[in-house]
Computed example of a mutant assay.
Amino acid sequence: MNTTPAPSALAVRDPWGLVPSIGNLDAYISAVNRMPMLSAEEEGELARRLQQQGDVQAAGKLVLSHLRLVVSISRQYLGYGLPQGDLIQEGNVGLMKAVKRFDPDQGVRLVSYAMHWIKAEIHDYILRNWRMVKVATTKAQRKLFFNLRSMKQGLKDQAADHETFRNTLTPDEVEVVARQLNVKPEEVVEMETRLSGGDVALEPQTEDGEESYAPIAYLADDRHEPTRVLEARARDHQSGDGITQALEVLDARSRRIVEERWLKVNDDSSGGMTLHELAAEYGVSAERIRQIEVAALKKMRKALEAA
């Protein structure tokens, strides 16, 4: 499934018609970085005009001046394998929600207030689109993707001293995972790094004026923030017990097709059965097996969302 954004992918759900629709991602980023930033006085005046008069033009200026913040925050989530254009699109939705609810009399700048809304919208998008994650391109990598988080949790539970357990796998633990899933240790390390979402590219601060800022000034290490901890637990549940529970809603044939196509762990590196092998076994076409697979995954996604 190709998740590369179409030319109109950056045309966000924008009820005000404020955010520019630019097909090329590099051109879009270049354009938003040229948007003028607002002083505290200008920001307060525009926010009051929106709050008191419903001034859409004022809202537009607030949104446009903070689009670069969305671009910067979106870079934190590139490790999930989703297109940056889609992440920016969802972040822009969060920014518009923040602008709509922003109260300038609370003594907080919009850039600080909007970060919560931008991240919340991006987080929701990632959790909704777990099936679209493109970090796994081979059957062996798909097995690794679906099992790595739950296996890490199992290794943690087996540790004699939980206080010494690290978020990253030790070399010995990497070998254990690689051996059980029949993949190379390097692939385990790469997948763990990509799933951690730790690659962050930040814009440098170009001037020292009081009103100027770079996103790095507002992006703190929030790995131990309660919301992030809960999100990590939710992801671990979905990729472990959640998958098991979602499989239970399927009929026997659909379940076997999903297990063979996505979750099979064999002694060799061949993975599960192909569409044609399953088609021959059930006496139907490969296209019919694909349709059953798509319907089953859709049903599993609904079960995960309802959990």
Rank of each mutant, 00 (worst) to 15 (best):
V70M: 04
A47C: 00
E43C: 04
D103G: 00
E121M: 10
D267C: 13
E203P: 14
H116Q: 10
E259H: 12
V189W: 01
A279N: 04
G23N: 08
E210F: 15
S74W: 07
I216T: 11
Y125A: 00
G209Q: 14
Y113I: 04
A303G: 04
V176P: 03
G271A: 08
N182D: 06
L263Y: 05
Q57H: 09
A246G: 09
E41H: 10
R255Y: 06
Q205A: 14
E259C: 15
H276I: 10
H276C: 05
Q238I: 14
D157H: 13
R149K: 10
L38H: 01
S8A: 15
V108Q: 09
V135S: 13
L148A: 06
G54H: 00
Q238G: 12
A6K: 13
R131G: 06
R194S: 07
L144K: 06
S254T: 04
Y125W: 01
D124E: 13
E41R: 09
Y28K: 05
H276K: 15
D172Y: 10
L144D: 02
D221T: 05
Q245T: 13
E287V: 04
P15V: 07
A252T: 03
G54R: 02
A58W: 00
G198D: 09
E248G: 13
H116V: 07
A306P: 12
V183H: 08
D55E: 00
R109Q: 12
A246Y: 06
S21F: 11
A296H: 00
P83A: 04
N266E: 11
W117D: 07
T137K: 15
E121R: 06
R13V: 13
S270H: 09
V99H: 01
R49D: 03
Y125F: 02
V71Y: 13
I73H: 09
G79L: 05
L275P: 08
G23V: 08
V135Y: 11
A234S: 11
T274A: 03
A201H: 14
R255D: 07
P83T: 05
L250F: 11
E203C: 11
A220G: 14
L82Q: 06
L87M: 06
K97T: 07
L202C: 01
L230T: 05
R142F: 05
L64E: 01
R68W: 08
E207Y: 05
K119M: 08
G81N: 09
E287F: 13
T170S: 15
Q51V: 08
R131A: 11
Y218S: 08
D55P: 02
T170R: 12
M273Y: 07
Q106P: 07
S254C: 06
L50W: 04
T3G: 12
S239C: 12
A220I: 13
N167K: 15
N147Q: 14
E43L: 01
T206Y: 10
A40T: 10
G79M: 07
L144G: 00
A286Q: 06
M37H: 11
E121K: 01
Q238D: 10
G17Y: 00
L46S: 00
R288P: 01
P15E: 09
P15Q: 11
N33A: 13
Q52K: 14
D208Q: 09
S269R: 12
